[in-house]
Design a protein around this nucleic acid. Sequence first.
RNA 1: GGAGCCGUAGCUCAGUUGGUUAGAGCGCCUGCCUGUCACGCAGGAGGUCGCGGGUUCGAGACCCGUCGGCUCCGCCA
Length: 608
Amino acid sequence: METQERALFRAIAPSAQYRTHFCGELRKSNVSETVKLAGWVHRKRDHGGLIFIDLRDHTGIAQIVFEPHLSDIFRQVEHLRVESVICVEGAVIARAEDAINPNLPTGEVEVVVKSLSVESAAEPMPFPIADDVPTSEELRLKYRFLDLRREKLHRNILYRSKIISEIRRYLWELGFNEIQTPILTSSSPEGARDYLVPSRLHPGKFYALPQAPQQFKQLLMVAGFDKYFQIAPCFRDEDARADRSPGEFYQLDMEMSFITQDDLFKVLEGLFEHITTTLSQKRIMQLPFPRIKYLDAMNRYGSDKPDLRNPLVIDDVTAIFKNSSFKVFASNAEAGRCVKALKLKGRANEPRLFFDKAEEFAKKELGLPGLAYIRYKENGEVQSPIYKFLSDAEKEALINALRIETGDVVFFAAGAWEKTCKAMGAMRNYFAPLFELDKDLLAFCWIVDFPMFEYNEEEKKIDFSHNPFSMPQGGLEALLTKNPLEILAYQYDIVCNGIELSSGAIRNHKPEIMYKAFEIAGYSKEEVDKKFGHMIRAFQHGAPPHGGIAPGIDRIVMLYADESNIREVIAFPMNQKAQDLMTGAPSEVTPKQLRELHIKLDLPEKHK
RNA sequence: GGAGCCGUAGCUCAGUUGGUUAGAGCGCCUGCCUGUCACGCAGGAGGUCGCGGGUUCGAGACCCGUCGGCUCCGCCA
């Protein structure tokens, strides 16, 4: 059977000037053939009278042998450093039984070299390529082209390529069209900070790099393309995180016409099932993905991106303490406040340090005043800093509500609803290592029914909580009759193992609903016309109902490649301060360039 | 903007309560070696202990500042 490498080879290297075979494809069946190989010197073993080189190319490693009777070649090889690029020609021979290397797919054969061409002699490496030794991030980024040669990163980048390829194949077969949208566009008033590009032809005006192709993809639906997708670069001037590349990242941007939320969910579930089965050994926990209302997610998991592999669930015990003599709990039983409990089965007898560390985490990392707990110890004793403040009725109600058994421990937090939920969610994550979560289990879920609006405490006004173009549930009537903060949107997130892969929404395609929604968020009709006139005009000329989503490509690859840092799945990432340590970006430009752009610098003191 | 951790040879690291000439493994250079596959053996070169200041008889170590890398908070419609 012809290998994939072989087929590829025929396609790209018919001339055989440099090579007739890839290193990784040589097998016993090639014995006695004369072959040409080309690649990098992975390792060299010089025995004085005999030199072995592990020759590496994109497909794998082959051992080649240099014998001393070809003295010119031999002398050259003696001084050859690792990572030099060479082309060789020689005969494939079977290795002696005791010389077979079972760790290499090509380990049953080797190539006895009869001619050599050194294409590129390498200087000593700043860090080893063949050995996976830890290396400082700074060096790795500076010499990214070398780091990319190393096995893990090389594999990750190829894996990313395969995932993107399967996404394209899958969506193409479902009738999606791949369409490019502008990179130089206009600044959007909402959202993250923009990257700006000065205009030469229009002094004082700027393009913005798109934070996402949001408006363009909706306009493509208005244009009747029915189903669109794009592997879209997105630019946001925000600070980095381990799972957030600074500056730029890629989304699988999608939009479909004449669909409901359910239709979209089916497409995405099918897509992730396809990726999982074709490109991984992982298993999807539940299909179709469970759907969790935003409110339930916050109440039960303390997060809008819960890791469902974690068995812990948060309980609401506000009602129990409504009239409690324990003031800390009772005072948090009014509207908008709550008392939450997190039960850990069978952990009451953990050592003192376990509880001290949990409390320290709650105080230091979460800013909680403390972390109350009740330990129902195995010996029947109850140990707790707050137990003495509770009435017998409250103790009884707790045991019933939380189904507490001997050996359990319950942690408590009380306060404003959102803050308390999130704090308990953080504790839930803190305790997750107790459960050895299965990394091969993909716990996808949909978070649905997000609120349309939220109250901005700082500016004392109502804001859109997510995308201003989302369709409110209940349509115009809801906007006219309901308390804005209680209106839900057809707005959803897709989450897997605690990672938010994407937000999405069924869009608002009706101008009158758009004007009203923006009015609630404090925008006049004139402002909407000014900022979003093109969207309004589009929706006034025949707009289909439509909706979409845009999962982050980098995070998807991270998830499937089991990487915890996004730089491990990006070929040329920037560092935490949004600099490219390899090319030196961002860099200064010439005065002439600035003049042409009508720009004068006004630098802060320490950069002058 | 804020907090934490880290910074010693090309790389990865050790360096005791502050005490003589700062070490190891890998890499590099030289020599030896015909069956290795992390080849082996011998020898050698290689250091502004990130940088600046301070404390001290004496600082790689202690203090202050600063620079660089990472992680987190803020930020991310």
